[in-house]
Amino acid sequence: MARPRMPYQCLEKCGKYLVAASGSHIDLFGLDDGSYFSRWTCPSLQGSENANGIAGETGAEFAHQDSRSSSFDIKVDATSPSSPPAKRRKLSQTGDEKTELGLPNESNELVEDSKDRLGGGKKQKKQKQNSRSAAVASGFDAPAVIALTVTKSSGHVVAITGEDKNIRVFELMEADGVPRLNQLSQRQVARVN
């Protein structure tokens, strides 16, 4: 069965090329005759995490939390089994909640669990946000492009990918006569305060 083709949500003109974003892809066309040149594909969230260490949103946050909390919380738990955090055991139901929401990170469950017991409400809230954005992100295989712009000199293309909140800068270059976008940088816009 022929699947519907993804429409192009953003278009920009870049010199003699048309830059068109479709879902998590960016295509290049010639403006003169509409000929198709090349496509850049946003790496999927899991893929980017493994491939280059610059994690996508969900991956990054989970990794982040793990490293942060496991570094001290769990250690404390181990060294002083009678310490106050043990009282918060009931918070472990966050784990269940997460499973209900169908989060893929079930392998993290154990770590999460022990952490949640200590984390308290704030962490629980964060967890929920993560679940929600993960659900949104799961709509596509990879983060979708939500905005595109081109420099005046037409040398660079800047795109925002929505789900991982990255600003990506591309360089327009030609390889073997075929123009393509080469990603120069990817910066996740993290909340600063």
């Binding site: 946000q129 905005a147 000199s153 800047v158 909140k165």
Partner: peptide, 24 residues
């Protein structure tokens, strides 16, 4: 929480990106 940029501009001299986000 990361904030999601929603609008982009590039300065005339092509060296700076101006980004607006959903937190204002």
């Amino acid at each position: 929480m990361p904030k999601r940029p929603c609008a982009l501009e590039i300065t005339k001299d092509s060296v700076t990106i101006i980004s607006a986000d959903k937190f204002g």
